[in-house]
Amino acid sequence: MKKKNFLLFFLDNLIWFIDIGLIIAFVSIQPTLIMPKNLISMIYSVSMLGFLVLAQAIVLISGNFDLSVGAIAGFSSVIAALTFERWIPGLPAPLLILIMLFVGVAVGFYNGFFIAKLNINPFLQTLGTNILFYGLMLILGGGTLFTIPSGIITPGGGMVGKSFVPIAVPFLIIIAILVHYLLSLTPLGRKIYAVGSNKEASRACGINVEKTIMSVFILSGLLSSIGGLIYTGYMSCVTMDMAQNDLFSSFAGAIIGGVALTGGRGKISGVFGGILLLGILEIGLTILRVPATWRQAMNGLVLVAAILINTYQAKWKGIVLAR
């Protein structure tokens, strides 16, 4: 019985064992990696991507997916930058942040309305949103925007007091805890899991499936716009291709963290482990001096590995439980 419980624990927390194994492997190559500052850097290097992973995880758990998380992050940042630079010069940073969040929620509502109310395929809808808003970024922005107030830079580029801890790191952890609470301990969270497991059964049980799906995409838009805020601070500018290359990494982080592609399964603790894995690989590949031209291929391998692990994890658990 103890062996069975351990195997189940191992499979449920597989991502953390993978993280520990990778850290040990990279530490054997570069011992200084174990220093607290470097460990913090692992999380910071993917802190902005982490918000997109959380957004993607919520949508996947609901049985959908969102190809527009990067576009929402970029578009909300462009709107904030243009508002400060051209439309309402000198607008205070707190109001600009509220504008960013409002844009994220609005685009999330747009996606949710078409998918939930008009029954548009989520792949086609969010792909269209991705193309549309990256195009609008180019039309409105024209090029990289550098006139950004310090209040917008601080969340993604500032430090906690005089420490070596970037503000983005505890911010990501706090948001991850809040998302965990939402999914695990609120009625909306239970509805999201139920809809992801079986829409028709959920509808038969009295759950408003359409409203739940709209809520999911609104949350995804909100988290993506927060990600845009962190991207802006991290780079100290707004580029016209912001987060464009991180779309599939957002899938990889959620899937390798244990979120089921079929919906209805996944824990934020595992998703955070998936985010950390991406950070470990980022720092590890830097230590190994892997050329930037190889990084995209490595990200592809991570996504393939994530899908394989996700596919067989449930089967392995079934075998263990059947014994």
Rank of each mutant, 00 (worst) to 15 (best):
S77P: 11
L285D: 02
Y134I: 06
L321K: 15
G318H: 03
L138V: 11
S28G: 14
D241L: 12
F113T: 00
A55Q: 01
M137P: 07
R295P: 03
R265P: 03
I213C: 01
A71H: 06
L185M: 13
S45L: 14
I20V: 14
N310D: 13
Y234A: 12
F10Y: 15
I319W: 11
N119H: 15
Q56W: 08
N121M: 08
A292S: 13
Y193H: 07
A81H: 08
P36I: 01
L188I: 12
A176T: 14
E200A: 11
N130F: 14
A252F: 05
I287E: 01
A55P: 03
L8H: 02
L178G: 05
S269H: 07
A80K: 08
L7W: 13
I120K: 06
P31Q: 10
G141D: 02
K267Y: 09
K117C: 01
I207E: 00
T126S: 09
G158W: 10
R295D: 01
I20Q: 01
G141K: 11
L49E: 00
L281A: 04
I43D: 01
E200K: 15
K315C: 04
F133D: 05
P187C: 11
S184T: 13
G128R: 02
K317D: 00
G227H: 03
L277P: 01
S220N: 04
S220W: 01
Q296N: 13
I29R: 11
L308Q: 07
N64V: 05
E282G: 10
L8G: 07
I177H: 00
M214L: 15
V69W: 06
R190A: 10
N245D: 11
Y181T: 05
I20T: 02
K4M: 13
V59Y: 03
G158Y: 10
L138Y: 13
A292L: 13
G263W: 02
N111W: 00
L7D: 00
A81F: 08
P170A: 08
N208W: 06
V209T: 08
E210V: 01
T293I: 12
L82K: 12
T32G: 12
D12L: 06
A306D: 06
G266A: 07
F6K: 12
M1I: 09
L145D: 02
G273N: 09
T293H: 09
E200F: 15
T186W: 14
L60E: 03
S215F: 08
E210N: 13
L91S: 08
L247H: 05
F133K: 01
A305D: 05
N5Y: 14
L308F: 15
F75H: 04
T32K: 15
A305L: 15
L22T: 00
T293M: 10
D66C: 09
G300Y: 05
A243P: 11
F51W: 03
V304M: 08
G300L: 07
I275D: 05
G135I: 11
F10W: 14
G263I: 03
A57N: 02
G264M: 01
A106I: 02
I148N: 03
S150N: 12
M159S: 11
I192R: 12
N38C: 10
F109I: 14
L182W: 08
I309P: 04
F164G: 03
L277M: 11
T286W: 04
A201W: 12
T232W: 04
V53A: 07
F102Q: 02
F75A: 02
D12M: 01
P94R: 03
M242R: 06
G300K: 07
G266R: 04
L183W: 07
A260F: 05
F123Y: 08
Y231L: 15
S236Y: 10
L308K: 01
